[in-house]
Simulated assay, not measured.
Amino acid sequence: MKKYFIYACLLLVAGCFVSCNNDEDIDTKNSIFGSTEEGVTGFDEWLLSNYIYPYNVQVKYRLDDTETEVTYDLVPADYDRSVALMKIVKHVWMEAYDEIWGIDMTRTYVPKLIQLIGNVAYTESGMILGQAEGGLKVTLFRVNEINVGSISAAQLNEFYFKTMHHEFTHILNQKKAYDPAYDRISESDYVGSSWYQVRLNDALAKGCISPYAMDRATEDFAEMMSIYVTNTAAAWESRLATAGATGRPILEKKFEIVYNYMLDSWGVDLDKLREIVQRRQNEISKLDLSTL
């Protein structure tokens, strides 16, 4: 009896499959699965020529849920603002490194995916301006806040370039380690994930160049590098002066290690790199940020 019951079930299931495969019953006009691909835009072609071919870097400006954190409430990056931002990134960031050490080195070490997001992401520690994953991917948020008609270098540094130089420093550190003596300078002052509760002046007085630098030594090192190259000499000196008699000597000791690391390990003079970055920032107003 059990055997016949199984056979009967198999016949019933087979009948269901036959019914389901009846083309006459399929509503082909209202499939839940998309059947068309997004067309190639002029921006896609520009990215091919300016990022993929020369640097082997992919740029995603369309919102891709496979590349984003599902807990964030994110919106797509605006097309025109994405065009403007990637033109600026190429001129101010990518080509600055090309100029200091050659395009082959840039191509080798830059992250291979840049993702653009329209708005900001929030966590318990505050807003996220940028993210990097394993040296392979950088995500830039707040693209839709860019005023293409009135570009602010200070805003670009805060939203994007400080983050990009910071994360790039991590990549370089992963390839070649810096002097471990750096980690011991402020070892007792790091506060981990509570860094966002620290005010800038308090961080400077402790010998950390920013509140985020008080997270841990590796972040401290990357902050020193990124803030130095994205700020003018006057702005850097202002931070040192604010650090006072206690914080300034610590910052100067740290910077000496950072400077020597970049020069000895990578052949990069940070003073020269800062000069290049500052010059290229000043050239943004002359760039055509819309024509592809």
Rank of each mutant, 00 (worst) to 15 (best):
F161L: 10
L113T: 06
M224T: 02
A132Y: 12
G130Y: 06
V120G: 11
K29D: 05
R199K: 13
Q155A: 08
I128R: 12
L11Q: 03
I209H: 01
L136N: 07
V89H: 12
S210P: 00
A96C: 07
A222M: 08
E24A: 07
G192K: 02
F161A: 02
L172S: 05
F33M: 08
E283F: 00
T169F: 07
F43T: 02
V148F: 14
I185P: 02
G244K: 15
N260Y: 09
K3P: 01
G135M: 07
E124W: 13
W46M: 03
T230W: 02
Q131Y: 09
L140W: 07
R107N: 06
N21K: 03
F17R: 12
K272F: 09
L48C: 02
F33G: 08
I151G: 08
K253P: 00
Y79Q: 04
S238E: 13
K90L: 15
Y122F: 15
A96M: 06
A241Q: 15
T291H: 13
F221C: 09
L263S: 05
D78A: 01
I209R: 00
N231H: 11
R216I: 07
E275K: 12
N30M: 03
I100V: 15
L10W: 04
E45Q: 11
V92N: 08
E95T: 12
M262Q: 11
E95P: 04
T163A: 14
E95G: 05
G39T: 04
W46V: 03
E256S: 10
L47P: 04
D189L: 14
W93G: 04
L63F: 10
